[in-house]
């Protein structure tokens, strides 16, 4: 350890904390091109390293109080994570299903039905475990983040709320989203400091109901118009109706989603510090549309740029209220999992 006792210790000045994204497309482009080339050359296996390169860049270009984040994960860890999940998990599962269904053909339908909750559970576990890995590989001012290892609990929550979602025909969506979000955020750490999140779903219900009803009305109207137009073979009307439906639902969901994100992020607490996310629906809509077009016209190759645009949007719209006492935050005791994210790979959620 170097001795820096002669340094001037910084005082917690009362300035507002800020988060800023300083990356640019021109800096990302060479990385994307190299990634693409090497991924093709290796028949796709390089993608674990490609993903890591993009993350290292995005993290490094995001500054909190002028200091960059550091992504310390490696492509090798992601690769090993995928291999391990395959051999201890996917392969035994496939063999198990195969053996069971050939030996007891009667059981096959039961197995298939049992697979649904299992997959829902595993998707929850996968999403959570990916966060465990990513948080442990995120550093700022040399302090590690952490996501407490509670992936099984998150998996159960996922099953529970998936059932609730279907039973309520989606009406309880705000409640479910808030509960899942709170669980995820409550278990995040930065060093010894704790994130707290107690988002209430009540304020969201009104806008969700508006969205819900609007979509039903739109769909109903659409069906009426289109079924009429089908009889009269009025194709301009049919095409027009489709376009109208698409545009209208996009606008409505953009409105709802911007409200949702504002609410979720604004409910987050870190030490005594609160966050405020103030994203305008129109801005969100604009970015979503452009990003979707970017992905469509580049056949997905623009994904890293799209990701960068989302990160920038996030950083531009978040405000941090209050003062963090950095002296109280010490290094996180956990160093995180050895390998990462294999399960997310398995479900293609990465």
């Amino acid at each position: 350890m170097p001795n820096v006792s002669e340094g001037i210790s910084s005082v917690n000045e009362n300035t507002q904390h800020s988060i800023k994204y300083v990356g640019e497309a021109s800096m990302l482009l060479p990385i994307v091109i190299m990634n693409l080339f090497l991924t093709i050359v290796t028949f796709g296996i390089y993608r674990f390293w490609a993903k890591t390169n993009i993350r290292k860049y995005l993290w490094a270009q995001t500054q909190f109080d002028g200091e960059p984040f550091e992504y310390t994960g490696t492509g090798g860890e992601l690769f090993m994570g995928a291999i391990i999940v395959f051999f201890v998990f996917i392969l035994p599962l496939l063999i198990g299903i195969g053996v069971l269904s050939t030996n007891f053909p009667v059981l096959t339908p039961i197995i298939m039905i049992a697979l649904y909750p299992l997959f829902v559970f595993l998707i929850g576990v996968a999403i959570y475990r990916a966060q465990v890995y990513r948080m442990s590989r995120t550093k700022w001012r040399a302090i590690r983040g952490a996501q407490l290892p509670r992936s099984a609990a998150y998996g159960w929550l996922t099953i529970k709320y998936a059932v609730l979602y279907f039973i309520s025909l989606g009406l309880l969506m705000p409640y479910i989203t808030c509960k899942m979000w709170n669980f995820m955020m409550d278990n995040k750490r930065f060093g010894s400091a704790v994130f707290r999140c107690e988002v209430k779903s009540k304020p969201l219900f009104k806008i969700w109901l508006v969205t819900y009803v609007a979509v039903i009305v739109l769909l109903g109207g659409f069906i009426l118009v289109v079924s009429d137009a089908f009889i009269t073979q009025n194709f301009p009307v049919i095409i027009g109706a489709y376009i109208f439906l698409f545009v209208a639902t996009t606008v409505i969901f953009a409105w709802f989603q911007s409200k949702l994100y504002n609410h979720l992020i604004s409910g987050l607490k870190f030490q005594d510090v609160g966050f405020e996310f103030d994203l305008e629906a129109f801005e969100f809509l604009k970015l979503s549309v452009v990003n979707t077009l970017l992905l469509v016209f580049t056949l997905g190759l623009a994904a890293p740029f799209v990701l960068q645009r989302w990160v920038r949007l996030f950083c531009e719209n978040i405000t941090i209220n209050g003062q963090i006492n950095f002296d109280l935050i010490v290094q996180s005791p956990e160093s995180g999992p050895q390998f990462g994210e294999g399960l997310v790979e398995a479900f293609d959620l990465g």
């Binding site: 820096v4 340094g7 200091e67 302090i143 060093g191 935050i329």
Partner: peptide
């Protein structure tokens, strides 16, 4: 330079 010691999240200006 800002020096972070990796022990706390504060930094020292050097």
């Amino acid at each position: 330079a800002n020096y972070c010691d990796g022990i706390t999240a504060n930094f020292k200006v050097l």
